[in-house]
Amino acid sequence: MTSRIIRLRFIQLYRGSADIGLFRALFLAIVLLPLISLFLIQRVGVHPWPIVIPVGTLYIVWLIHSRRKDYHFLLTIAPHPERVFMAEYVLFTIPVTVLLLSAALYLHVLIFCATILLLAFSVPARVSTISRTVRLPIIPAGMFEWQSGIRKNLVVIILFYIPGLFGFYQIWLSALSLLMLTMIFVSFYSEYEPLNMLAAGGYRSWGFLTRKVTRHVGCFALFLLPLFILAIVNSEYRLITAGYFLASVNLLAFSILLKYYQYRPGAYSGAHQMLTTLASFISVILPVAILVAVFNVFLAAGANQTLKRYLNAGN
């Protein structure tokens, strides 16, 4: 059964990649992936990358695992869904394992693989029963992505926020914290609201988009502000620090705009999750973050076109 599911996953990947479009797929395969690979190969042995690479990858695996919707389905067709998870995650992380092995980081590989196994054999959080509701009075009522996302990731957010506060002491802690928090927050937008929620405010497409982006990006900037201040006060890399904070805020805008560019009522987009994660990783190379900012302009126009269909109809 495991091999049958894995085969299906490859079929999904093949058919799903056709949805990205030929130009974007070629760009991804010929430009972006080699660029990222080259960057990672160069940095894998240099502090703090031996930690950032496996932790980042584990975070992505955790993200995938905790959002899995197929656990119950797999239970009905396979006696051990954990084996399916394990096979998927091991296959997915082979490049990182090889990368760590190439730098002779054997202990890292050991811990990395053990954590993958632990994740695969745990019950995905999505199916665990929520018995307590975390009250979030600070989050404004309309920011349902944050209310839902923070409740799902509260512990992880706290775990990554606290080390970031020590950025004045060790700047790489701040960088790691920033990357992880950005990846968590951009992932909030992978689930698309139903049409009645989208139209509830009575806005036209452009008004809806500008309000959404400014509000969410503003709140995210405020959330990151303490980390930013503590990192910049004593850091000798002031310009780079400021650049990374702007890149984080820019990524949140990218995630929101991508969501509405691809918007389909009530859907969940794996492509959104994949693209935002990829954008987060490549934004580590700051000049690429500028490209993402430029891309946002085009994305905003596209998102406006998509939303016109739903919000401006009949007006």
Partner: peptide
Amino acid sequence: YSHITGREYLGLF
């Protein structure tokens, strides 16, 4: 699962 056919789905059972 997305991007799979009805036949592929039934093949899982």
